[in-house]
Simulated assay, not measured.
Amino acid sequence: MKKMLLILALSVFGFANAQKGTILVGGNIGYSSNKIEREMAPSKNTTFQFSPKVGYQFHDNWTVGAEFSLVSSKSTIEEGEGKATNFKAGAFVRYTVPLSETFSVFADLGAGFQNQKDKIYENGVLTSEGKGDGLYAGITPALFINMKKGFGLNFSIGGLGYETMSYDATDADVKSFYFNFGKTINIGISKNF
């Protein structure tokens, strides 16, 4: 448990409390793995995520920029295996309110395009393949704590979002709405250059 908390704290990076006219670079790196031991159908799932952001603070409170996300996951159940790759590219706008020299709150509003590719294998042979395209939008509020010399910590506890995905092979249209406040916790380290 301690290793997982350390990995979480070190792998999630955010933006610093920036100043007008500065370039901001940040993002998230994440990894998760779970294994279910069952007699009949043991399974294992692993996921890796990389989500960088680059922004420009054009006002004391406003930042605009580009965001990118790549998520790769793999699942195994008995002799079957599934692989999925999700790619997102879009833009974000951030509004920051300083509460003191130490604390600030901010909210990121992001929207863009997403693409997903799925492959399913049985005994090492590709049995099905799917591809989907869609859009996403989401808002994430967070707290920034300025530690010293531009270094700080970012804390968020979820967000609100909407996603669409249209799959070509099955003609399925999927629409998702999520509200996960309190369900996820992100801790980040940030630096303003």
Rank of each mutant, 00 (worst) to 15 (best):
I7D: 11
L8P: 03
L10D: 09
V12F: 06
A16Q: 03
K20N: 12
G21E: 06
T22P: 04
M40Y: 11
M40I: 10
N45F: 12
T47F: 02
F58G: 05
W62A: 03
T63Y: 00
V64D: 04
G65D: 01
F68E: 04
V71K: 08
K74R: 14
S75L: 11
G80Q: 13
G80W: 06
E81Y: 03
E81C: 07
G82K: 01
F92L: 05
R94K: 13
R94A: 01
L99S: 10
L99V: 07
T102A: 15
F103W: 10
S104V: 03
S104Y: 02
S104H: 03
V105T: 10
F106A: 03
D108G: 01
V125W: 04
G134W: 02
L135R: 03
Y136G: 00
A137C: 09
A137L: 09
T140P: 00
A142L: 04
F144H: 11
M147R: 13
K148Q: 15
K149D: 15
K149G: 11
K149A: 14
G150S: 05
F151T: 03
F151N: 06
F155S: 03
F155P: 00
G158M: 04
L160Y: 09
Y167F: 15
A169H: 12
K175G: 11
F181Y: 15
G182A: 09
G182P: 00
K183Q: 15
T184I: 09
I187R: 01
I189A: 05
F193N: 09
